[in-house]
């Protein structure tokens, strides 16, 4: 009974959610990713495998930065009290974006010349981990702050982590290894760990908090959205 009600809610939500989804940022990120790969292919049709891996990782980063904006919801305070839970509404968003991202990733892989393409499965794992991590960061920002659109701050934090991680990670936790490296296998086990951790974090941040504590985490974001929004 309850399941059928939820299914009906999802069916009814699908179209409005698709219209309300902040498509522009993910589209820009995905577009930039494809642009990087396409330009690289035109400039150098036979890249070295390490270069192909760097290009694909940059494309993943661009797409994930776009996805960091996906949890933005200017109506979140209005919809906080509706009977349809936020977890369900977020799941609908995810259901809408996942096929598009999968399609995008296939195109990205196909843009890399086959002789230089790193192992597709391993790179797909990296892409999945990065994208889910970006979504989880967005969900955490929504869960822990009052911000309506934490996207810019989430994107900045995600980008910062992505730039700093390769510099700071010690050798035994290396994630960004070149294809053919002896640590490739171990690094991808760690990537799987990142994916699992991101999924768990995302799951924990899905529900609407029961009540907002007066001292809820107030992160001073780069945009200065540190205080409760003044527009409502």
């Amino acid at each position: 009974m309850r399941v059928s009600r939820q299914a009906r809610a999802i069916r009814q939500l699908l179209l409005p959610a698709a219209r309300a989804l902040p498509w522009r940022a993910p589209a820009a990120g995905a577009g930039l990713g494809l642009l990087i790969l396409a330009v690289a292919r035109i400039v150098d049709s036979d890249p070295a495998p390490w270069l192909a891996a760097v290009l694909l990782r940059c494309a993943i980063l661009a797409d994930a930065v776009g996805l960091a904006f996906l949890m933005d919801d200017p109506a979140r305070h209005t919809t906080a009290t509706v009977p349809t839970r936020r977890a369900l509404r977020t799941a609908v968003r995810l259901a809408l974006i996942t096929p598009v991202t999968a399609l995008w990733w296939t195109a990205a892989l196909l843009l890399v010349p086959s002789q230089a393409r790193p192992p597709a499965g391993a790179l797909t794992l990296e892409a999945a981990a990065a994208c889910v991590l970006a979504l989880a960061a967005g969900a955490a920002a929504v869960r822990l702050t009052d911000a309506l659109a934490p996207g810019p701050s989430v994107a900045a934090a995600f980008l910062f982590t992505a730039v700093v991680a390769p510099l700071l990670l010690p050798d035994r936790w290396a994630l960004f290894v070149a294809p053919g490296d002896a640590r490739w296998e171990a690094a991808h086990q760690r990537w799987a760990g990142v994916l699992v951790g991101a999924v768990l974090l995302w799951g924990m941040c899905l529900p609407e908090p029961v009540r907002r504590r007066p001292g809820a985490l107030r992160v001073r974001s780069p945009s200065g959205t540190s205080d409760p929004s003044r527009t409502w």
């Binding site: 522009r24 940022a25 990087i36 290009l55 994107a155 992505a162 945009s223």
Partner: peptide, 19 residues
């Protein structure tokens, strides 16, 4: 006037740096 522009330009800068 979009907040996505700066992060994406930064991705391009990172790529330029690496390459």
């Amino acid at each position: 006037a979009s907040p996505i522009a700066a992060p994406l330009i930064t991705v391009l800068l990172v790529l330029m740096l690496f390459v």
